[in-house]
Simulated scan of single mutants.
Amino acid sequence: MLIHHHTREVEWGDCDPAGIVFHPRYLAYFDHCTNLLFTQAGFEPATLQARFGVIGYPVVGLRTRFHAPCCYGDKVCIETRILEFRNSSFEVQHVLKRGDTLAVEAEVTRVWAGRHAEEPRRMQGRTIPEEVKVAMG
């Protein structure tokens, strides 16, 4: 199973007036880490449309648990992996730790999406290519 580890330092702009990470910032961290995981597997997000006819993998479901706060200057490590592939959707797990302390866990459901054939402003799920599943599995 492919796992991506990303270390970052919490920036001032990530924090709310109480000095802790504002919860939506974690979602931005996790989105970035999903892209890094795909890149690590050889699937640069910017090339997905040309390579597979998809425009991305939007979020359709999210479950998050906050265990401990993170503050400005903290160094955090985010571990990202695919838990499961289905036909056109997949589950991504993110585990964020501050040192040995589990701070945040999230499971994100995403859809392998392309433009709708009849209404190009809309998206629709596409079958995830086997080569993607194998590379990430």
Rank of each mutant, 00 (worst) to 15 (best):
M1A: 14
I3F: 08
H4L: 06
H6K: 11
R8W: 06
R8S: 13
E9K: 15
V10F: 08
E11G: 01
W12H: 14
W12F: 15
G13P: 01
G13D: 13
D14Y: 03
D14I: 00
C15R: 10
C15N: 12
C15F: 09
P17V: 06
A18K: 11
V21T: 06
F22C: 08
F22D: 04
R25T: 10
L27R: 14
L27S: 12
A28P: 04
A28D: 15
F30P: 01
F30Y: 07
D31E: 15
D31S: 15
H32N: 10
H32R: 14
T34W: 03
L37W: 01
F38I: 08
F38S: 05
T39Y: 12
A41N: 07
E44D: 15
P45K: 08
P45M: 05
A46E: 15
L48A: 06
L48M: 13
L48K: 05
F52H: 13
Y57D: 05
Y57Q: 09
V59R: 10
V59S: 05
V60M: 10
V60R: 13
L62C: 13
R63V: 00
T64N: 05
F66M: 07
F66Q: 02
A68M: 06
C71D: 02
G73I: 12
G73D: 04
D74M: 07
D74H: 10
D74T: 07
V76W: 01
C77I: 11
I78W: 00
E79G: 02
T80Q: 00
R81C: 15
I82L: 01
L83G: 01
E84S: 11
F85Q: 05
S89P: 06
S89Q: 09
K97P: 00
R98H: 11
R98V: 00
R98E: 02
T101Y: 00
T101I: 14
T101F: 01
L102C: 06
A103F: 01
V104Q: 03
V104D: 02
E105T: 15
E105I: 09
E107L: 11
E107N: 12
E107Q: 12
V108K: 13
V108C: 14
T109A: 09
T109E: 04
R110E: 01
W112K: 09
W112D: 02
W112R: 10
A113T: 11
G114K: 10
R115N: 07
E118V: 04
E118Y: 01
E118A: 10
E119F: 11
P120G: 11
R121D: 09
R121T: 12
R121S: 13
M123H: 05
T127Y: 04
E130R: 11
E131P: 02
V134S: 09
A135H: 05
G137T: 13
